[in-house]
Simulated scan of single mutants.
Amino acid sequence: MTDRYAVIGQPISHSQSPAIHAAFAQATSQDLRYDAIDVAPEALTETLKQLHADGLRGLNVTMPHKAAVVEQCELISERAALAGAVNTLSRTDAGWHGDNTDGEGLMRDLTRLGYTVEGRRVLVLGAGGAVRGILGPLLAAKPSQLVVSNRNPWKPEALAEQFKAVGSITPRTHLALKGDRYDLIINAMSVGHSGSMPRLPDGLVADGGACYDLSYGAAHAPFRTWTETQGATRIADGLGMLVEQAAASFDIWRGVRPQTDAVLKALRAG
C-alpha cells in the first residue's frame, strides 16, 4: 500500500509542501502520497487521533499548531524539547513522535544564500512557535548578539529564560529597537499572512545587512516592502527554508535525504 503523509495547519491552502514532497518522492523513487489538511486549533487533538487511526506514517505541522502539538506527542526529540515546538510527526505504535527540523532548514538555507550568523548582530522578529524552532541553531552559530523582538514584552523574555542554558538572548519590544542596527534581520512574524507589518523603528538594517523572511509568497510581501524602504539590498523569502526543512523531514520518514536545488528552482519557476 502507498504510505500516506500530510501537512496540517490553518490556513493551509497556500502550502507548497505537497508539491515539494511529491518531487522528493519522484526523485528518490519512493511510493507515497502527501496531502494538505486544514485543522482548526480546537480540532487538533481529535484530528491527530484520527490520522493515526487512518494509518498516516507522518505529518508536517505548521502554524498555529507547532507549540500545541508538543502535548499531543508520545515522545519528542531533544531539539523539539528545547524549542518547545514540533514541525515533524512520525507514527509510532502508541501515537506520534515529534521532531523539529525548522532550525536545520533555516541554517542550510542561510548557508546557501551566503548569509553569515557567526560574529554578527542578529535580530529575530516574532516570538511564536516558528521562532522556538530556530533559536537553538542560531545560538549554536555564535552570533555576537541575538535579539528577539515582539510587541508583547513577556514573550521574548520567556524565550530568553527558556534558552539561557544554550546561549544569550536579548529580549526587546519593537519600540525598544530604536537606535539598534543589525547585520541580519529574520522575520518570523505571522502577520504577513494578513497583509500587514507592525511599525518598526527606521535604521535597523546595518550597511550591507541581510534580511530573511520565514514566510514566502503573498505573506512575504509586507516584509519585503518594509526592507526595501529601509534600503536593504539582500532580501530573501523562506521558500528555501521550507524546502530544506521538508528534506530533513523526508529523511526522518524515509531514510534518505533528497537533493533540494532542483526542487527549489522548480518552485521559483512555477
Rank of each mutant, 00 (worst) to 15 (best):
I185N: 14
A130I: 13
L59Y: 08
S77T: 04
F250N: 05
A165R: 05
I186S: 11
T45F: 12
H14M: 11
Y34R: 02
T47V: 14
A67I: 15
L242C: 03
I185T: 12
L44G: 09
A27N: 12
T260V: 03
G133P: 08
H220M: 13
I252E: 01
N152L: 13
A247M: 05
A85L: 12
L177H: 15
I169H: 09
R234P: 12
M107C: 05
T101P: 02
M197N: 00
G55P: 13
N152I: 07
G119I: 11
S194N: 10
I134H: 06
R172K: 04
K178M: 08
L175K: 04
A188N: 06
T101N: 10
R199S: 08
K66Q: 07
R132M: 04
R172C: 06
G129V: 12
I169L: 15
D202Y: 07
L125I: 11
P41W: 03
D35K: 00
M189E: 05
R120L: 06
G167A: 11
P153L: 04
G240N: 08
H193K: 02
G203D: 07
A140T: 02
T229W: 05
T47N: 04
I20G: 15
L242R: 10
R234K: 12
N150E: 08
H97F: 06
S15P: 07
K49P: 06
V86W: 08
P171T: 11
P198F: 02
A22K: 13
Q26M: 11
V131W: 00
G105C: 01
P11W: 07
I252W: 03
R199I: 01
D237L: 07
G126K: 08
I12G: 10
D54M: 14
L267T: 15
G240E: 03
V191P: 00
I252T: 03
S13E: 12
R121F: 15
G208W: 05
T45P: 05
R199G: 02
A36D: 00
Y212E: 10
P198L: 02
I76L: 09
G133T: 02
F24V: 09
A53C: 04
